[in-house]
Amino acid sequence: MTGSIRVPLIEPGTRPELAEVEAAIRAERGGEIAVLYQALLNSAPIASGWERMLTAVRNRTQIPADLRELIILRVAVLNRASFEFEAHEPHARKAGLSSNQIAAVKTWPAEANGFSDDESLVLELTDCMTRDVEVPDAVMQRVCARFEPHGVVEIVATVAAYNMVSRFLVALNIIH
């Protein structure tokens, strides 16, 4: 997809009615308001709710960081959300994913070597949820056997949340 972003970007600090939302975004995101959030600021309620939900997914779950980032990268690949992939590649490295794993996420399952059993299981779940929406019972049974109920909910919510993120980015042509 080429072209420009399909909604105006809201320059931080230009709308007093957004000050509280912007402050919350800055507090959770390290001070800068990225282009994704500048698009979201077109709707204060959406931007505020988005930040609260994604902060919970990113920072308040018990999912190991490497599994979380693996999910995010795979969703980005499947949904062709280059912005999301590029934004999370440094987080994936910091979480301990190797350069080979990051590259292999683009062609998984063809490049399944180098992933642990947990990583492969999470990638399989991510593919099912993203490509087909419905998760086969056999896959979900393996997920439920491996993770406690809170972990299952958190993993499924991470896949779902980042499908929302990537589809928002792609629909609005936010590519860099």
Rank of each mutant, 00 (worst) to 15 (best):
P136L: 14
I25D: 03
A171L: 12
A87L: 07
F83S: 07
R29H: 12
E22F: 05
E134C: 15
N173E: 13
N113F: 12
N42V: 02
I10H: 05
G114F: 02
P16I: 04
R52T: 02
A112P: 04
E89L: 13
N42C: 08
Q38I: 03
L67N: 12
R6M: 08
I10M: 00
E134R: 15
E69A: 04
P8G: 02
A92C: 05
L97N: 05
V105M: 04
K106T: 14
A56R: 15
R6E: 05
L41V: 08
L36Q: 02
V35F: 00
E28H: 13
R142F: 07
L78N: 02
V156E: 04
V165Q: 04
A87M: 04
R6Q: 08
G31W: 00
I25A: 11
Q101S: 03
E17G: 09
V135F: 07
E124W: 01
I10L: 03
E89R: 14
A65F: 00
P149Y: 04
S120H: 10
A24Q: 06
P109F: 11
I46H: 08
P45C: 10
A110H: 13
E154R: 07
L97P: 14
F168N: 01
H91C: 12
G96Q: 13
F83L: 05
A56W: 13
I25P: 02
I72Y: 04
R15V: 06
R142E: 01
S98C: 11
R6L: 07
I63T: 10
S43F: 00
T2L: 05
A95M: 11
E154C: 11
E22R: 10
I155Y: 07
R74F: 06
V105L: 01
R60P: 03
L41I: 06
P149H: 07
T55M: 01
R80Y: 06
R29K: 15
T61C: 06
V135W: 10
G30C: 08
S99T: 14
L54Y: 08
S116N: 05
V152W: 05
L169M: 15
H176F: 10
A47S: 03
F115S: 01
E20G: 05
I175Q: 14
Y162T: 00
P149K: 08
R29D: 09
Q62L: 01
F147W: 15
K94L: 10
E111Q: 11
A65R: 14
A138N: 10
A110K: 13
D117G: 14
L40S: 06
V21E: 03
E119R: 09
A161G: 14
A76S: 15
V170D: 11
C128T: 10
M1R: 12
I71R: 07
T130S: 11
Q101L: 03
T55I: 00
